[in-house]
Write a protein that binds this DNA or RNA. Structure first.
Lengths: 176, 176
DNA sequence: TATTTTGGTCTGGTGACAAGACTGAGTTGC
DNA sequence: GCAACTCAGTCTTGTCACCAGACCAAAATA
């Protein structure tokens, strides 16, 4: 997507956003980052993505300033930057659309709640309790009624079987 | 994107949404539909997209129930369905992110206002006046302060040089 | 120190995309 | 009513991205 012949000549914010996050897999990588995934191998196992493509996407996201690669000595970790966290509304909106218009049973696979008050978000990402639109750091993801038909066994899928505060690392550097 | 080897096995709403709208150009086609573009040739001229790809995208969107192809006798037109209109929050969110984090001058290229009260939307799509989140049919698009540096001369670009109620056809069937 | 895990790179085959020629139906001018 | 033109595609060819899987070096573990 990111090539010169792309839609960059379009003087359009949407086109520029898509240059960064519009490629295949990119959004799913970012979604996992919001869930707390930070390691190459965890993304690889959870997404069933090719190594080369994952390498490429992570590199592009780092170049774009959406992720930072942290590697002081040990294995590198990828963390969302402010710009990355600002993508949450886009991911949430797409996810909600997918649930409403592109899902078979249309039972939510995951639900998001405002951590402070425990209220479940509406489809616009608003907390009906507070009336605010909480950022991803204030949310809890939990499995919904339409949970996985074919449960996966990778580390990420397992961790997501119970409610989790978003953006908390799946494994912390210390225990890794 | 829509192939069997895609990410459909992911029991994930985001993945399913991306199966429909995640391909290159798809989002930009839809954005133009929100602006009132309905004709193949207008999309072609405004997006600088290959004919074959545009044909493919429109077909896929029709198959997915996001657009309908209306062609009683005359040239066909493509209109957003309810499912299509429901994609507006996703497009708006991406567009806002692009403006804030992926744009050079970061002056908004276009601004969106609530038609009823004329108030400009915030970055979450809320009307600060009413406190509501208006649907696309209640919005007006207007050129913003960071307008095109290299103005385009195709019909769509010209029409968008002045404020327009969203979803109103660029050219009506009668005058076409 | 030996073994395994992790985070990549490299290669070959396949599918998607860009650019442009071509075509047949719909529309317009006369 | 006919010719010219527009419109909405299809088809072809070359290039590029993606996938699967082999391979490899550094880090972690036993």
């Amino acid at each position: 997507m990111a090539l010169g012949t792309g839609y960059s000549q379009q003087n359009c914010n949407l086109a520029r956003a898509l240059e960064v996050v519009g490629e295949r897999w990119t959004m799913l990588v970012l979604r996992d980052c919001f869930y707390g995934v930070r390691r190459f191998s965890d993304l690889l196992a959870h997404l069933d993505i090719s190594r080369a493509v994952l390498t490429d996407r992570l590199g592009a996201l780092v170049d774009a300033g959406v992720l930072v690669r942290v590697a002081d000595g040990g294995h590198p970790e990828y963390e969302l930057t402010e710009a990355g966290k600002a993508l949450w509304p886009s991911i949430y909106a797409l996810s909600q659309w997918g649930e409403q218009y592109a899902s078979p049973g249309s039972y939510p696979g995951r639900v998001f709640s405002h951590a402070e008050c425990g209220t479940q978000l509406d489809r616009f990402g608003r907390c009906p309790g507070c009336g605010t639109i909480p950022g991803p750091e204030d949310l809890v993801v939990a499995p919904g009624p339409g949970e996985a038909v074919h449960p996966r066994s990778d580390a990420v899928a397992v961790a997501l079987r119970e409610p989790r505060r978003m953006l908390t690392p799946l494994r912390s550097r210390s225990e890794a």
